[in-house]
């Protein structure tokens, strides 16, 4: 037995919830072809041609795929719908299992992989949602050892433990809540690092206040700009597919995290 439940088979991974158009083909632990394209914001135009190219370049016949992993958001409503509609239609038409992956979890993993932090780390992904809000969540990773002793290969095997669901929150309030949560822990349980990932620029000033609120040094609180990368949609999706945690194509839907503005108004002022 291998120590990890290594997924078998070839899958297509895609995400269009952020500025990057993310498409990859993975086979087991190997990322065969990956493209995280920031050049054009028009995901609806290029997504299918890009899927076609990535399948071709990885020598994959779409009929031989074993599954699909798709980022279901949260993020741009229209953006999320582009990948989700594509994934559910492909999954239905090609009769493939599909795994719904949190775009925030994949983004947190992308940022953590780049930041390379040892010990216990809280990872807080951020996707700007205007008016002081962000789509966000809370994960914990625990990578033991010194930087030198951990090879890159084993680094791609880390998994994030989710501590809070994906939600849209005011980043100021969220930062204060995180600090309270930190202080409520026994000192031995507290994270060594707090890492904010993703679209950090707009919210940097607000979230960096957590250093003062927790008493962590500025070295221990870090920002890591990143996008949601296709390989992480794929890796997280593979684990779900291997565990049988799949969605039915028809019921696969974006995770908007909130009702539409029109519905919210209607709930407040019924006509």
């Amino acid at each position: 037995m291998e120590k990890h439940n290594r997924p078998q088979g070839r899958i297509l991974a895609l995400d269009t919830s952020s500025a990057a158009q993310a498409v990859a083909v993975l086979d087991g632990a190997d990322v065969l072809v990956e493209s995280n394209n920031l050049a054009e914001r028009n995901h609806s135009v290029n997504l299918l041609p890009e899927i076609e190219r990535v399948l071709h370049e990885s020598g994959t016949n779409k009929r031989e795929l074993n599954g699909i992993a798709v980022g279901v958001g949260p993020g741009s409503y229209t953006g999320v719908r582009i990948a989700v509609t594509t994934a559910k239609t492909l999954a239905w038409a090609l009769k493939l299992p599909v795994a719904a992956v949190s775009s925030l979890e994949a983004q947190a993993a992308s940022g953590f992989e780049t930041a390379v932090l040892r010990g216990r780390t809280w990872i807080i992904p951020l996707v700007d949602a205007r008016r002081g809000q962000a789509y966000t969540a809370l994960f914990e990773a625990n990578v033991p050892g010194e930087k030198e002793s951990v090879s890159d290969a084993s680094l791609s095997d880390f998994s994030l433990h989710r501590l809070a669901e994906d939600a849209i929150l005011l980043t100021g309030e969220w930062t204060a809540k995180l600090a309270e949560r930190f202080k409520a822990l026994a000192p031995s349980e507290r994270p060594d690092h707090i890492l904010f990932t993703g679209e950090t620029v707009k919210h940097a000033e607000t979230v960096l206040a957590i250093a003062e609120l927790t008493g962590l040094s500025s070295e221990q609180v870090r920002l890591q700009d990143c996008v949601t990368e296709a390989r992480w949609i794929g890796r997280i999706g593979q684990r779900k597919l291997a565990a049988g945690d799949t969605a039915e194509a028809h019921s696969l839907l974006p995770n908007y995290t909130q009702v539409t503005e029109a519905e919210a108004n209607l709930l407040r002022n019924p006509q």
């Binding site: 609806s44 076609e52 779409k62 719908r81 509609t85 239609t89 492909l90 038409a93």
Partner: peptide, 18 residues
């Protein structure tokens, strides 16, 4: 445009799959 996109992505994916 947002409504058109859903049909367009589904049609593209279906045409591609077939």
């Amino acid at each position: 445009v947002g409504a058109l996109l859903v049909g367009i992505m589904a049609a593209k994916a279906f045409a591609f799959a077939l």
